[in-house]
Structures are given as structure tokens and as C-alpha cells.
Design a protein around this nucleic acid. Structure first.
Length: 987
RNA sequence: GCCGGCGUGGCGGAACAGGUAGACGCGCACGACUCAAACUCGUGUGAUAGCAAUAUCAUGUCGGUUCGAUUCCGACCGCCGGCACCA
């Protein structure tokens, strides 16, 4: 008996539906991550937001919505999923708001968090709210401070983490103090963040900013540089993210070379990756901040000029200083010379701001012949340019033969041009299939021009030619000289001549026998297959662009005993010699610099350090943590560049824990990066208890107490977040994790197993969403108008997950229409009816599962739409079909799916049900459409059974009428059969 | 400037491993419903030529590899992210 039980549906009322389910879910325990559950764990982390006053942004939803869908599917697939949320609440915007309004950052933050949380709940993100964290909570930053103290108390010596005694002044601690520049506004008398410096001007008052040196806390991240590169092999990051990390660390192997300064005890240490170019070092350049300048003050003849240059450099940012497009500036330091350790040459020293004190040693040896910036600088200041590396080529047609003598010679290649006809004088060899320029050796002491003119005369008879230019320096060419039976290693000088008149001498009979002389156009030369010239490409390139700088590796010339070596050989040999002479050594250098960890701000974690005049720098006793951020009256920074905290005497003044005398607290705070560097672990230690953090006992720390929990949950299985955080935040948190791993806090060396990233959402005008453009979309407005399900699905549908996409209101209504159509289709549900949707359904299950798994959210939604379109065509839909479809919908549109689950008569939540499996057979059992191409063009299509053999396919293809027609009786030269795809016929 | 991406119809985009370019959505056009409009439903929709079957062209530009390129390689143009104190 067939039961016709069409459901009478009312119109899709998202408001009613979403209210209903949100109330129910609020009371349920859905989303809770259970420590040590039997199910396999899946830690799904998404970056926590900075709770700004503007509320949740649709850009946030891009991350949270997709990760929520992923979490929901994983839970249905039987995983114990942790999907937590918290607040990265320290930061400048809140502090600036406090300065403006006088309100407490703490209060403002609490309000913002409330708004964010309410909005997230409206969007039905299934976070485990019991694990909510807030980096500004003293119970949280207690442990951020604890970690800082561990950095202070430890050092890495010979690759091992060791503890450093309090009074040890020598061992390099991982947290240390150093004089580092800050951006300083001389008018406001405050330190500025980079972002607050707009084109060298203070954002607040418009005055020009300077760099001011200040004692700052640093973290020795460079100590971990190699491991931060090497361990990338053990994780699964998007390739471009891993590359960015590697490039940011910028490991390069090279040499440290000492250049003595003449008549002084000082020397200049430089780092170079091109020790092979040492003979070409014709000057040195030091950064304006370099210590050598004050050291040499008495000897510098133009000290005033140098000083003025240094003062000007202070006004520029690193970015401006290193901009290649800008003209290089510099000043020669007169009165001192450096000595090139390899050949004793005296060379001038310059000071220039394109050299940064923070990279390498803050000084370089400049090799203008082989470095673009040095070249530019040398041209400008008229410094000699000495070529020491030349390109080397090997002839493809006649490579050197083994066991044959190699003869070296200096030689020329004359490119003789007839300007009127724009033709080039060429030789066509008679006994060999060669076409060449006029070429020949330089005899004895003959100069190159004479040699070239002589060769042209001998080989072609032309007398009236004028020398135009050299095509750069020589090129080494290695080939087997067939006509002489020897290998040649020739240094060819490319030279351009123009023909002045057609005066010709008779060529000797000998020469006549060797080659014909022919004038050819460049096109003819290019097409000539017999061009017997390995250096042809180089000449062509140099003809097009003047002053071709050779910056690649090659062969050494003008380098004494190292002449003829390859760059690589020479590099090793030169370093060896320097080592012997105690003038250098091979070394590794990094672009990565130590992390400036101090901020002169209020709204951050206080650095838990005491300064005592007598006892020096002392850590706060760990038992005294947290060092609570005190309330202040005025959040305005002080005019000494210190943090506002330094104004609170009652807080700053403290007794020294060691000697009991008057001492002061450190008033700098930590950067925003600090709290977010370990938050993924804080969710774990936060545990399930809703009331408060679970505090460890006296002799424990947070990580030792929750060792088991940390071991269970870490590493994070999948970390999702903005593309803009994939360099710095990711690197910083990996660094902290590795340090804590060394301390024994964690059991895995990497925090995140896999990292993906999402693009940003642009405004409808294709610009970044911003208040000033008036193109910001507030999620609340969209929810009010279309519902949370529509907003969630639209943001998934908006575009490729890892790219930026522009907001489009028409797109929102399209998604809304889709959901309303799904709702309408529910009305067609029937029992015991064959809706013939089985195959399509199983294809959809597979497609949807794959798409969610790899965060292809736009195609996930598209597949849901496609299936819905199929249902729309049907008069009746089986209950079972709808049930499975509801499951597929549920990660994207939870409210409607839950309602649908109830409508089809299921008890309990759809999210407690199992994710559907697909039947592989059902998907495969289809007929295939095979494409038939002739010469790469599609000419016919055949429908065949999927188990057809390649041979059958070939026969079928050739017998098709259409193909017969296209073949016109000609015989195929080649037939390519791609199983289950196509047949390609070449005629 | 340096490092990393991206570029496909009128628009957002799809094409997982080099094999049917344009799935899905928007927009537009026509039709149905309506007194009319909106909503909804149906049909069509890359360009050019043709009544049509069909053909040619087409994935930023130019070139290369291949039987075959949106996909791989090279050069160029344009846009976006990061550049160490925004988060």
C-alpha cells in the first residue's frame, strides 16, 4: 500500500525556525570537546578575533563559517572535535579608544566581547564555549608572563636548552635587552607603531617622525631559525605559506670576511654569499648606525658630513631605505681606507642607508660589476668597476670531448652590421654545417680591436669597418673544435662593428675554401639551424640591453690564482685561504631578526621584571604571577617614550626581592602577538570547567598539570585563518611552541599539523571593507533580512575559499532563493516512492564530503544547489532521499536542516546522526561520453559503456561517420587513447 | 623595492592528476501566472557568421613544450596579501 502523505508546508519562515532551534541548542551540550573520549580526536582551530568596537565583520564569518561546517561534518563522521573560540583582546585600537574617551580598556573589551559572542551565537557557530579564553584575563596572561620568564631564564648553548642563573650576565638568554630603534614623534613625544607612521609622518599630528634608540626586550627567535625551516617538512601547510615562512627566515650560506681598516686596530666584518667575487670588491659600505663610525671619529676627515647623513637616515624607514627604485645615496668616509684581505688592495669606505644595521653585519663589501645596487652606487660616485666573473656556456652541438686536449685562447667575435640594409656579416662554413660571426683568436700582444679588424679582413676582405662597442665582458665558451680536433676553452669578446664602405681586398684561396661570406638579416640568423655559437643568446641579450650586469655564477677572471675556477669552486677556495689567513670563515646568515618584544603601551601584558640599581635585572618570582595590569587615570604615553605605566609610582616602585632596597618594575608591556602565540594550548588547559581556569598547584605549572590533556589534543589537526597572518603570527607561535617543547611542556615539536588560509571579503565596490569607504556589511543586517542560514551559505558560496571575493547583494538573494526552494521541495516528501535520484544522490554525497574536507566551500554549495534543482523537477521525493540530503545540507545551513530532520519524523538532533556513506558502484555504473579529437580539435562524442576496452574504443572512434568524414580518407599518423576520456587522432 | 599569490562570459566563479572550457549563482531576454507589477515557475543566454546543421575564434598579453595547454615553461602587463610596533 502506498501512503500518500504530502506535507502541507507554510512559507519558509527563517525567523521562527532559527529562533526555535537556537533556543534548543543553547540548552544542549552540542559542540563540547571531551578530554580522552573514545572517538578519534580532531582539533579544529580557527584564529580568534580581536574584539574591536565595530563588532563581528563578514570577513570573520569566512573563517568561522567554513570551519564550523567542517567541524559539524567531522563530528557526524565520528570524531571528538574540539572547535574552540576566544578573544585576542590586547591591542592598540582599544588603547587609542581609551585615550580618546577616557574609558577603561578593560570595560570596553568586555563590552566588545559581549557583542561578538552574541553575533556568533546568532550565526550558530558550534564553538565549545566552555573553553572560551581571553588573553586579557589575568588568569590567562599569568601564563603568558610565565612563558616570558622561562625565555628569560633559559638559553640555548650548543644546541641545548639550559637554565641560566639569575646573576649570570654572560650566557645569552632567550629574552634579553638591547638598544633598538622605535618610531618617535618629536612633536607628540610618543613612540609610534609602524602603522601610525604614514609616509614618514606621525598619524596624529603630521610631524615628521624619527628613529629613536631605546632599550627594549628582545626574544632570540634566530636561535630557532634552522628548526623553523627544517620542521616545515613535517607539517602540511599550503605550499605558498611554507615558502613564505622559509623566505622570511631567509637562511643563506656564505662567508664572514674581515677587512682591516688601514693604520688602525679596527676591522670591518662583512657577510657575503658571493665570496667568489672578492677580487671585484672595489669599495665598502656601512650602515649609518654602524659602530665603526664613532670608533673612527678622530680619523674621519669629513665627520660633519657623515653625521648629517646619519641624522637624515634616522628619518627613513627600512622600507624606504632599501627601495631599489629610489636613488641610492651615500657619503664617502674620508681619511680611512679598508684593505681587501685577498689582494691587499686599498678601497674606500662609504656610509649609505641602503645598508641596514639589522641584516648581516651591517656592512658590505661592494662588488659593482656583479651586484645591481653596488653597480648603481658605483656609477653615481664614480668608483671603479672590476669584472671578476664571466658567464660560461657549453656548445650544445659540439660539446667538449673526453680524452681530448683542451686549448685555451682569448678570442673575439665580430658582429659586423650594415646599418643601411640592417644585415649582419656571417660566415657559412663549407666543410661543417656551421653559420658563425667572424671569429678568431687574439694573437700575442695584439689588442682586441686590431685582432677583430684583422680577422674581418682575412676572412671576408672588408676593410672599411668602424668599432662601435664591446658587448660587455668576455664569455667563456667550451666546445670541441671539429676543424682542429681539440677541445677549446675560449674567452670570447663580443664586439660590434659597422661597415663604412664596401672597400674589399681579395680573400686568400685558403680562406675561400673554408667558408662563404654572406650578409644575413637578424630574422634569417634566428631561423638558421646551423648557428654554431653557444654564446649567441648572450650577445643578442647584450645587444638589446646596454650595460648588462652579470649577477649569476660563472667563471673567475682577474682573480689571481683563482682565475678559471667556477664560482662554486672559487668560493670554497677563497674561504679556505681566508681561514688560513685568519681573515674570514664560512657562516650562515638569516634575514630573520630577533623579535623586539617591548611595547611602550598600556594595554598589554606587563613584562614581569624588576630593575634594581644594585642587583640589576631580576625576574618576578613565579609565585607572584600574574603581575596585574593596574588601573591608570591617563592612558596617554609619557613624553619620555615610556609606557603609561611608568606614571603610577605606587605600582612602579617596589622593593628588590634580592637586596630589599628600592627598585622599579619594568614598565614596557608585551606585543599583541604574545597572547596569540600559545592560545591553542590554553583552550586545552582551560578544560571543561565553565566557572574558572583550573589552576595548578604550587609545584606545578599549567603545562605540567595538563600534560595528559595536552598530549591528547595536540597537535592542532587543522588551523584555519586569514592569509595575512601566515607569516608573522604563524612563525611566532611555532617559535613559542618549539621553546615550550624543549622545556618539556609539549610532546610534539610543531603546534599545527595542517594550515590553510582564507581570503578576505571586499566591499561591493571591490575595495577593502572600511568605514571610510562606507562599504561595510554588518552581519546582523543580513541575518535580519535573510536569516543566518542564508548568510552562512552565501559566505561559503561567495568565491574560492583562499582568495578575496567581493560582496554582492544579488548573490545573497540567490542563496536565499535556493534555501526557500529546498524548503518548498520538502513538501513533496513521500514514503515508498522511487524518485530515481539514487545515483545523483550518491554522487552528491561523495562530492560534498570531498569539498568540505578540502574547504572548497563554494563548490560544496553549488553541489547542494544542483541536487536541489533535480528534486525540483520531481513530483515526489522519497523520505530517505530527503533525510540524506538534509545531512548534506546541515554543515552549511544548520537551522533548516534540523527542522527538516524533524519534519521527516526523526527524533533527536540531525547533528547526532551519522554522516552518509556513498556507494562507489552506484557512481561508477554510468555510461561514459568519450570525446574524439582530430589534431587536437573535438570532432565527435560517443556514448559507451564504462567497461569498454581501449581497442574497442579505437575501432568505434575510427568507424564513426563524423570521424570518417573528417578523415577524408587520409590515414591517421597516430592515435592516442586516454581510458574513459578520449581518443585523439593525428592526421 | 623584496617575498608570496591571482588574472576565465555582462558579473561572482567551475574545470580534483595536461584531455568535452564556462558547472552553480547573479544579471539579461522571452514566455506562463496576474487587471497590472513584484514574487514564483518555464525556456534561452561566451563572441562572430549562418534559417539551420555547423564552422571559426575565445581562459590578461606575447612566445615555447605537447597529438592536445585555463592547467607546464619563459618574458611582459595588471591586481591583491606580507614586509618585523595593525591585528
Amino acid at each position: 500500500m502506498v501512503i500518500y502523505n504530502y506535507i502541507i508546508m507554510e512559507k519558509y519562515n527563517f525567523k521562527k525556525l532559527e529562533d526555535k532551534w537556537q533556543k534548543k541548542w543553547e540548552r544542549s551540550s552540542y559542540g563540547k570537546a571531551v578530554d580522552f573520549d573514545n572517538k578519534p580526536k580532531h582539533y579544529n582551530l580557527v584564529e580568534f578575533p580581536y574584539p574591536s568596537g565595530a563588532g563581528l565583520h563578514v570577513g570573520h564569518c569566512m573563517g568561522y563559517g567554513a570551519s564550523d561546517a567542517f567541524s559539524r561534518m567531522k563530528r557526524m563522521q565520528g570524531f571528538n572535535v574540539m572547535y574552540p573560540m576566544g578573544w585576542d583582546a590586547f591591542g592598540l585600537p582599544t588603547e587609542n579608544y581609551a585615550i580618546k574617551t577616557g574609558r577603561k580598556p578593560k570595560d570596553v573589551t568586555a563590552e566588545n566581547i559581549k557583542v561578538f559572542k552574541k553575533q556568533m551565537k546568532r550565526l550558530a557557530y558550534s564553538f565549545d564555549w566552555d573553553r572560551e579564553i581571553d588573553t586579557t584575563d589575568p588568569e590567562y596572561y599569568k601564563w603568558t608572563q610565565w612563558i616570558f620568564l622561562q625565555f628569560y631564564k633559559h638559553a640555548v648553548v650548543e644546541g641545548k636548552l639550559i637554565e641560566v642563573e639569575d646573576d649570570d650576565q654572560i650566557t645569552p638568554r632567550l629574552a634579553y635587552q638591547a638598544e633598538m630603534p622605535i618610531n618617535w614623534c618629536p612633536s607628540c613625544k610618543i613612540g609610534l607603531a609602524n602603522e601610525e607612521v604614514i609616509a614618514g609622518k606621525c598619524e596624529r599630528c603630521g610631524a615628521g617622525t624619527e628613529r629613536k634608540m631605546q632599550k627594549q626586550w628582545m626574544l632570540r627567535i634566530t636561535e630557532y631559525a634552522d628548526r623553523l625551516i627544517d620542521d616545515l617538512k613535517t607539517v602540511d601547510y599550503l605550499p605558498q605559506i611554507a615558502t613564505q615562512q622559509i623566505n622570511w627566515i631567509g637562511r643563506s650560506e656564505g662567508a664572514e670576511i674581515d677587512f682591516r681598516i688601514q693604520n688602525t686596530e679596527y676591522s670591518l666584518k662583512v657577510f657575503t654569499t658571493r665570496a667568489d667575487t672578492l677580487y671585484g670588491a672595489t669599495f665598502m659600505v656601512v650602515a649609518p648606525e654602524h659602530i665603526i663610525i664613532p670608533n673612527l671619529e678622530s680619523r674621519i676627515r669629513n665627520y660633519e658630513e657623515v653625521k648629517e647623513y646619519i641624522n637624515n637616515a634616522k628619518k627613513k624607514s627600512d622600507l624606504e631605505r632599501t627601495d631599489l627604485a629610489k636613488e641610492k645615496t651615500g657619503v664617502e668616509i674620508k681619511g680611512v681606507k679598508a684593505i681587501n684581505p685577498i689582494n691587499g688592495a686599498e678601497i674606500p669606505i662609504f656610509i649609505a642607508d641602503y645598508i641596514l644595521a639589522s641584516y648581516g653585519t651591517g656592512a658590505i663589501m661592494a662588488v659593482p660589476a656583479h651586484d645591481e645596487r653596488d653597480y648603481e652606487f658605483a656609477k653615481k660616485y664614480d668608483i671603479p668597476i672590476m669584472e671578476v666573473i664571466i658567464p660560461t656556456v657549453t656548445d650544445k652541438h659540439d660539446p667538449p670531448k673526453e680524452g681530448v686536449e683542451t686549448i685555451f685562447r682569448n678570442a673575439i667575435q665580430a658582429i659586423v652590421i650594415n646599418r643601411k640594409s640592417n644585415k649582419v656579416l656571417m660566415l657559412k662554413w663549407k666543410k661543417f654545417p656551421w653559420t658563425t660571426f667572424v671569429t678568431g683568436g687574439i694573437d700575442g700582444k695584439e689588442d682586441k680591436i686590431t685582432a677583430a679588424k684583422r680577422e674581418v679582413l682575412e676572412e671576408t676582405g672588408y676593410k672599411g669597418i668602424n668599432f662601435i662597442k664591446y658587448l660587455g665582458g668576455p664569455v667563456e665558451s667550451n666546445f670541441y673544435a671539429n676543424h682542429k680536433g681539440v677541445n677549446r676553452k675560449a674567452h670570447f669578446w663580443g664586439m660590434v662593428f659597422e661597415i663604412e664602405n664596401n672597400d674589399k681586398d681579395e680573400i686568400s684561396d685558403e680562406e675561400k675554401e673554408i667558408h662563404d661570406v654572406e650578409w644575413m638579416t637578424w630574422e634569417e640568423i634566428e631561423k638558421d639551424k646551423n648557428i654554431k655559437c653557444a654564446e649567441y643568446e648572450i650577445w643578442l641579450e647584450r645587444l638589446k640591453n646596454d650595460n648588462q650586469l652579470f649577477t649569476d655564477c660563472g667563471v673567475l677572471i682577474n682573480s689571481g690564482e683563482f682565475d678559471g675556477m667556477s664560482s662554486k669552486e672559487a668560493e670554497n677556495a677563497i674561504i679556505k685561504k681566508l681561514e688560513k689567513d685568519n681573515a674570514g670563515k664560512s657562516t650562515v646568515n638569516y634575514k630573520l631578526r630577533d623579535w623586539i618584544f617591548s611595547r611602550q603601551h598600556y594595554w598589554g601584558e606587563p613584562i614581569p621584571i624588576i630593575h634594581c640599581e644594585k642587583c640589576g635585572t631580576l625576574p618576578i618570582d613565579e609565585k607572584e604571577l600574574p603581575v596585574i595590569l593596574p588601573d591608570v587615570e591617563d592612558y596617554q604615553p609619557t613624553n619620555t617614550g615610556e609606557s603609561p605605566l611608568s606614571n603610577i609610582d605606587s605600582w612602579v616602585n617596589i622593593k628588590c626581592p634580592k637586596c630589599g632596597e628600592d627598585a622599579k618594575r619594568e614598565t614596557d608591556t608585551m606585543p599583541n602577538w604574545a597572547g596569540s602565540s600559545w592560545y591553542y594550548a590554553a583552550y586545552i588547559t582551560r578544560g571543561n570547567s565553565k566557572s574558572e581556569y583550573r589552576n595548578p598547584k604550587e609545584d606545578e605549572n599549567l603545562f605540567s598539570k595538563y600534560k595528559k590533556e595536552l598530549k591528547y589534543w595536540l597537535p592542532v589537526d587543522l588551523y584555519n585563518g586569514g592569509m595575512e597572518h601566515t607569516t608573522l603570527h604563524l612563525l611566532y607561535s611555532r617559535f613559542w611552541h618549539k621553546f615550550l617543547y624543549d622545556l618539556g611542556c609539549f610532546t610534539t615539536p610543531e603546534p599545527y599539523k595542517k594550515r590553510i588560509a582564507h581570503g578576505i571579503i571586499l566591499g561591493a565596490d571591490n575595495r577593502k571593507m572600511s568605514k571610510s569607504f562606507g562599504n561595510v556589511i554588518n552581519p546582523d543586517e543580513i541575518i535580519d533580512k535573510y536569516g543566518a542560514d542564508t548568510l552562512r551559505a552565501y559566505i561559503m558560496f561567495i568565491g574560492p575559499y583562499d582568495q578575496e571575493s567581493a560582496w554582492n547583494m544579488n548573490g545573497v538573494s540567490g542563496v536565499y532563493r535556493f534555501i526557500a526552494k529546498v524548503w518548498a521541495n520538502i513538501g513533496k516528501a513521500k514514503e515508498n516512492v522511487d524518485d530515481e535520484l539514487g545515483r545523483a544522490l550518491h554522487k552528491t554525497i561523495k562530492g560534498v564530503s570531498d569539498d568540505i574536507e578540502c574547504y572548497s566551500m563554494n563548490t560544496y554549495i553549488a553541489k547542494l544547489m544542483e541536487f536541489n534543482n533535480l528534486m525540483t523537477q520531481k513530483d515526489a521525493i522519497n523520505y530517505e532521499t530527503l533525510k540524506i540530503y538534509a545531512k548534506l545540507l546541515s554543515p552549511a545551513i544548520p537551522h533548516l536542516s534540523e527542522e527538516l530532520w524533524e519534519i521527516v519524523g526523526e527524533k533527536g538532533s540531525i547533528f547526532e546522526s551519522n554522516w552518509p556513506d556513498f556507494d562507489q558502484k552506484l557512481i561508477e555504473e554510468e555510461d561514459l561520453v568519450i570525446v574524439i579529437q582530430i589534431n587536437g580539435k573535438v570532432r565527435d562524442r560517443l556514448t559507451v559503456k564504462s567497461d569498454i576496452s581501449n581497442a574497442e574504443l579505437k575501432t568505434l572512434a575510427l568507424n564513426s561517420d563524423t570521424i570518417q568524414h573528417w578523415l577524408c580518407g587520409s590515414k591517421p599518423k597516430k592515435i592516442i587513447v586516454v581510458p574513459k576520456k578520449l581518443v585523439s587522432i593525428v592526421i
